[in-house]
Write a protein that binds this DNA or RNA. Structure first.
Length: 467
RNA sequence: GUGAGUGUAGCUCAGUGGUAGAGCGCCAGGCUGUGGCCCUGGUGGCCGCGGGUUCGAGCCCCGUCACUCACCCCA
């Protein structure tokens, strides 16, 4: 055997049925975004390194040690994006700003060079939304309500929302100063890491999980006491809107978020369990200075990013594999070469007509028994049996795999039932006392549009066979 | 970058220094044209890799690689 290859560390293949969870999340997100007026932006995965050091902050771990750097042939450093907000803002400034405000969403992979663990990979997928050019708390509320609706529709009820305001460039310095002053007076109690943060990014001390640090930060000055009038008004306005919508959230003084560009509103959606050591499924907030920082006109903005593998992890606890994998409507079972040729034709006729049909295409040809086993394994609803008897006698033979019952129609009955018009039948069926042809199975047939379609195509192929 | 744990069949995992195992899966048969349940048989392995100790190593020792979880950080 040749060398075995394996996926790169921290990267992974997402196999079915897990991939169905991703698809489900993406599908619902797209539906909701459409209703909320967010349009998709397709972004490159590669950006210039500077874009992220400028936006996320040169001192953050993401920029300092977690970027996948790709040197290009001209010697400039490109980077696999660690997040997409910077990309969206870059794209906005470059190609959208002249049109005014924009509500955008994206879906795609992000890359961070971290040690992988549960709920954290080097390539991970994010669904995100950004509203650029909106100043009031209205869009803040819109995004939070959008997410709330999203989680409710997915049936995830244990998600809690944490909310805070970090102030702006006018009021944050004062808060920062007060915080540093307080922390310095308690410096001896802080962990080594936090002593360093005190110099580089004191707000992050509030985020520390170390118990000793938590004890200190518990009594640290709260940012809300330092908000300037504009920031206070914005935050109060947001809370009023959320309260009016009866959205449940928790104010959290300690919530600071890791990226430098955040201003005013910041939020996180957290799951109590199921994500390993992680708890955030969504993180987001305002970044009112970022557009200007990246070369645009001063433009307020807000956005969020949702971790899809973390969401999938939560969904996998709720949804069984059986629910994810839908079996074929009909599995074609054949006996003999002649029947194989016929079934093969029928297979594609059914598929062309929109039905999920399947059959065993591997050689040597499988036995009837083996085919039925396969049909069962694939969770097929029914097995359409095509053999010498069926072909010569023009018989329709469908075995319902749930009950094990067989539906056998002779040629004459087949032709009669195939003439039934579905739309007409449907209107008749709604009338009380309606019984078609007095035969139970025929009524069962006409009540199932998929089955009727199957039957018609079967008959069509059967009769074409004679020509 | 740091720490801990785990590497044996396709998957999940047993395995006292002495012949390489089970369950599940897969294939076939029992039932030559009828799935699930059951029974029988079959398929399947450089025991992660390299070295050492030993008459003898899946097991002990050293190294190395990979994976997992956690720290850190974040979605």
């Amino acid at each position: 055997m040749n060398k075995k290859y394996q996926v790169v560390k921290g990267f992974r293949d997402i196999f079915p049925p897990e991939s169905f969870l991703f698809w489900q999340a993406e599908k619902l997100a797209r539906e909701i975004f459409a209703r909320f007026g967010y349009a998709e932006i397709l972004l490159p995965v590669l950006e210039s390194q500077e874009l992220f050091s400028r936006s996320i902050g040169a001192d953050t771990d993401i920029v300092a040690k977690e970027m996948f750097v790709v040197p290009d042939k001209k010697g400039q450093n490109l980077v696999l994006r660690p997040e997409a907000t910077a990309s969206v803002v870059r794209a906005y400034v470059e190609g959208l700003a002249q049109k005014g405000s924009a509500k955008l969403f994206y879906y795609g992979p992000m890359f961070r060079y971290e040690r992988p663990q549960k709920g954290r990979y080097r390539q991970f997928w994010q669904i995100g939304a950004e509203a650029i050019g909106y100043a009031g708390p209205g869009v803040d509320a819109e995004l939070l309500l959008l997410l709330d609706l999203f989680f409710k529709d997915l049936g995830l009820k244990d998600i809690s929302i944490r909310l805070n305001s970090l102030g702006c460039k006018i009021c944050r310095p004062a808060y920062r100063e007060a915080l540093v002053k307080y922390l310095k007076s308690n410096e001896s109690a802080l962990c080594e890491e936090c002593k360093r943060r005190l110099e580089t990014n004191p707000l992050r001390v509030l985020d520390c999980k170390n118990e000793a640090c938590k004890a200190v930060t518990k009594n640290a000055p709260s940012p809300s006491a330092f908000l300037c009038p504009d920031c206070a008004t914005h935050f109060a306005g947001l809370r009023k809107l959320l309260d009016r919508q009866k959205l449940v959230y928790q104010l959290d003084d300690q919530l600071v978020r890791g990226l430098d560009y955040y201003t005013r509103t910041v939020f996180e959606f957290q799951a109590p369990t199921g994500l390993g050591a992680q708890n955030a499924v969504v993180g987001g907030g305002r970044y009112d200075d970022l557009v200007e920082e990246l070369g645009g006109n001063p433009t307020p903005a807000i956005g969020f990013a949702l971790g899809v593998e973390r969401l999938a992890l939560l969904l996998s606890e709720k949804i069984s594999e059986a629910e994810l994998l839908a079996g074929p409507e009909a599995f074609l079972v054949f006996s003999g070469e002649k029947a194989y040729a016929f079934a093969f034709k029928l297979l594609f006729a059914l598929r062309a007509a929109g039905l999920f049909a399947d059959m065993a295409l591997d050689e040597p040809l499988r036995s009837l028994r083996s085919q039925l086993k396969l049909a069962d394994k694939l969770k097929s609803k029914a097995a359409l049996i095509v053999g010498e008897d069926e072909l010569s006698g023009k018989i329709f033979n469908l075995k319902l795999l749930g009950s094990g019952k067989e539906l056998k129609l002779d040629h004459e009955t087949l032709q009669r039932v195939a003439k039934v018009d579905w739309e007409e039948m449907k209107s008749h069926l709604s009338q009380p006392g309606f019984v078609y042809a007095g035969k139970e199975y025929e009524q069962a047939l006409v009540q199932n549009q998929g089955l009727l379609k199957l039957l018609k195509i079967y008959l069509h192929e059967l009769e074409r066979q004679e020509e």
